[in-house]
Write a protein that binds this DNA or RNA. Sequence first.
DNA 1: TACTGATAGTCAGCATACTGAGCAATATCG
DNA 2: CGATATTGCTCAGTATGCTGACTATCAGTA
Lengths: 152, 152
Amino acid sequence: MKDNNDMPGHLARRFQQIAVAVFLAEVGEAGFDLTPVQYAALATIKANPGLDQVTLAGLIAYDRTTITGVVDRLVQKGLTERRASSRDRRARELEITDEGRRTLRKITPAVESAQQKMLRGLSAKEGGDLMRLLRKAIAAGNELSRAPLREA
Amino acid sequence: MKDNNDMPGHLARRFQQIAVAVFLAEVGEAGFDLTPVQYAALATIKANPGLDQVTLAGLIAYDRTTITGVVDRLVQKGLTERRASSRDRRARELEITDEGRRTLRKITPAVESAQQKMLRGLSAKEGGDLMRLLRKAIAAGNELSRAPLREA
DNA sequence: TACTGATAGTCAGCATACTGAGCAATATCG
DNA sequence: CGATATTGCTCAGTATGCTGACTATCAGTA
């Protein structure tokens, strides 16, 4: 009988669970109310001004149906603007607002501290190894999920 | 500017996303409709007959509020029985049904094949290293989430 | 025994994630 | 040009997961 601890899928869920909890705790203590998904989306919008939702989804490997709600909430919080594209009337162009920029800047230390905390218990070398192995497994499995990573 | 690929939290989400997709695909091809969470719960109920929901939650590190719905669905599918405990009238004792046992037995090859597939792209040694590092990080962060692992 | 605290379970509400369907607009090709 | 396919987005439905609150019950103690 295989133990749960021998199942990469189970370990993946546990690690993700802890990662999200750490992120929310650090960011919450810093006085912000932003989820990991919202943070990644906001940072990507800032780095790629005017991008459309499908491109955003591809850059961070979200499902396109998930993006709708995430962007809804970023707009609701005043961190992002969503407007119709002039080139393609199906598409929505996304821009970060000044408020969004301010939030990103102030939240960054908490985010980085969270990334550290997730790896506590591992040496620097082990942390690097873990990330390298995850990247490799993810690259090999990229096309297996409905929301693969897509380059710009 | 830190890239997403340098964030363990982001890598955790991506790996988990792929792991779930692979699981559902393999299990679906085998003709079953069972999620990773439902599978883990069912296997744990089988291994610990008569356990209550809080114990089940602890053994697989779920939140107790999530367990309610998961067990609901296992009962709905006829794979599990939930009955009031005689010792403690607050608690529910969980038992696997014959149908549940049959399902577990028939689904096992698909589950194991899924675990393999998640690690494709990694050598056997790398896969072992990844699992070891994940276990270590998880052990160190166990108490950081609302649903830590609890021994029986 | 009565009070106090802890525990088992559920529920409402919110935020990911996915499937599948559908609409509107654009691209492509005969 | 017109039929067809594709693309961007949204929506309905379902399943995790979480927070916080609530009920019922149990356990320990004054």
